[in-house]
Simulated assay, not measured.
Amino acid sequence: MSTGALETPGRGAGLADIFRSRFLLKLLVSKELKVRYRGSVLGLLWSYVKPGVQFVVFYIALGVFLGLEESDRNPDGLPNYAIYLFSGIVLINFFTEALGNASRSIVGNGGLIKKIYLPRQLFPMASVWVSGVHFVPQIVILVVACLFNGWRPSLLQLAAAAAGFIIVTLLATGLGLLFGAVNVYFRDAENLVDMLLMIATWASPVLYSWIMVRDKLGETYFNIYQLNPITVGVETFHYAFWLPTTDGAEAIPPHLLSVWIPVALAISAAVLLLGQLVFRRLEGRFAQEL
């Protein structure tokens, strides 16, 4: 007769289940990709088309019409603004897709969750992985464009970009777990996520320079602005991909490497922990609520 402690039905071991169920995660990622592009003519090519159209619209509106691109008539603009813009877009697109899909993943897989038991964390995690699959071709295009513009990054710059991607991935996963669980009980969570994603692009220096923020807000509010992990992630991508294509005179935010990257990693890790705690507390009644 077993004397082991009783466990609440429907509750797993948290993120540890992801490692134990790697094969199931791979199947879910494959399923999501097949379902998403079923009947699509372009298929995975949409990973190129969507950010490409987004880039062209922003570049014309901001770089050309509003004068953020450096030119003979506008020497105060950003050099290689196209690289600056696209390096931010690829990262923010990864975040918005990962969080948006992860927050809907539990409700979207309600039929499967009600039929069989498997670790619930697999669903939001699979959404993040699918976003990573879409991120790869975009980063390849960015690297090719950078190479054509004389890109010669240092190992420190590449390490900073890797840290920035980790920061954004941890944040997206944590928020995806949090809102994915809450969305089962309160469908208003989807609308809240949509608002956050709408704000995300403008609340970080994807389209504009951090210097504009500092000059308008001052040092105190600029430091508050820097507490946003997405801001730090975007700045690391600018540091790694855009800065090496310039003459090196452009500045990076002060203390980016020594202070803001560690702070952003800590904040993103805390969000991941919070999301996991909330998810584990609520997952026991997912099948009943769905």
Score class of each variant (00 low, 15 high):
R152W: 01
E289F: 12
E283Y: 10
G248K: 05
T245P: 06
P244Q: 01
E235M: 03
G10R: 02
A160D: 07
G77F: 05
L290E: 05
E7Y: 00
M198E: 05
L25T: 11
T3W: 00
L142I: 14
G218H: 00
S204R: 01
N80T: 06
W129T: 11
M125D: 03
N101K: 10
G132W: 01
L147R: 11
M212S: 11
T3V: 05
P153V: 14
V53I: 15
V53S: 14
F123G: 07
L274K: 04
Q121Y: 07
S30I: 08
L227S: 06
M1Y: 07
G176F: 02
E32F: 08
I211S: 04
I141V: 15
L122I: 12
T245K: 01
V259D: 00
M1A: 07
F186Y: 09
F179V: 08
L192K: 01
P75S: 12
K31P: 03
R285Y: 04
H255A: 13
V35I: 14
L147N: 11
F65I: 15
W242Y: 00
L33C: 13
E283V: 12
A162F: 11
I139D: 06
L118W: 03
N149K: 14
Y37R: 10
G43Y: 02
A5P: 02
G176K: 04
G284R: 07
G218W: 00
A159L: 13
L27T: 09
V35A: 15
Q121F: 08
V206K: 00
A203C: 11
L282F: 10
K114E: 14
I224N: 02
V206P: 03
N101P: 00
H255Y: 04
V136F: 06
A162N: 05
G275M: 09
G12I: 04
M212R: 08
K50W: 06
D215I: 02
V182P: 02
N223Y: 03
V57W: 04
T173N: 03
V64F: 05
F279W: 09
R104S: 15
P205H: 04
S268V: 07
A189E: 07
E219S: 04
Y48F: 15
S40R: 08
I83F: 01
S2W: 00
A269S: 14
I83R: 02
L178M: 13
E32A: 12
V128Q: 08
L112I: 14
F241R: 00
N228F: 02
S40W: 01
K34V: 12
K115Q: 15
Y185T: 14
V140W: 03
L91D: 04
V49M: 10
P51I: 13
V271Q: 08
W202D: 06
I139N: 05
P229N: 06
L273Q: 06
R281N: 14
V107L: 13
E219R: 00
S258L: 04
T220K: 03
A270Y: 05
V133D: 10
I116N: 10
N80F: 09
V206I: 08
S30C: 10
Y117F: 15
T96G: 08
F95T: 06
P262T: 11
V49A: 14
I89L: 15
Y221N: 01
A269D: 07
I166E: 01
G77N: 08
Q288K: 08
L256M: 06
W202Y: 12
P79E: 13
